[in-house]
């Protein structure tokens, strides 16, 4: 029988896993964001939200 999972436990795991997941994915995300920048903007660290 599967164990009943409390919502609190689930929340903790969710937070930890998402933090680590995003940390690992971050280089790819950052590369993607930089691809929208010009040569000069590439130098500054503020992430640029592409304007569509």
């Amino acid at each position: 029988m599967a164990r009943a999972v409390t919502n609190q436990r689930k929340l903790v795991f969710t937070l930890v896993a998402w933090t680590i997941g995003i940390a690992i994915f971050f280089p790819i995300l950052w590369t993607f964001l930089t691809s929208f920048k010009t040569e000069a903007e590439g130098d500054c660290i503020a992430p640029l939200i592409p304007v569509l």
């Binding site: 689930k10 795991f13 969710t14 896993a17 998402w18 680590i20 997941g21 690992i24 994915f25 790819i28």
Partner: peptide
């Protein structure tokens, strides 16, 4: 450590797994 963590119940499990696996495709 990651395998044990990703095996736990959580919200958005599928998406987190994709995020973790993504670097392999670069």
């Amino acid at each position: 450590a990651l395998a044990i963590l990703l095996d736990q119940p959580m919200w958005g499990q599928g998406i987190v797994r994709i995020l973790v696996i993504a670097p392999f495709f670069v």
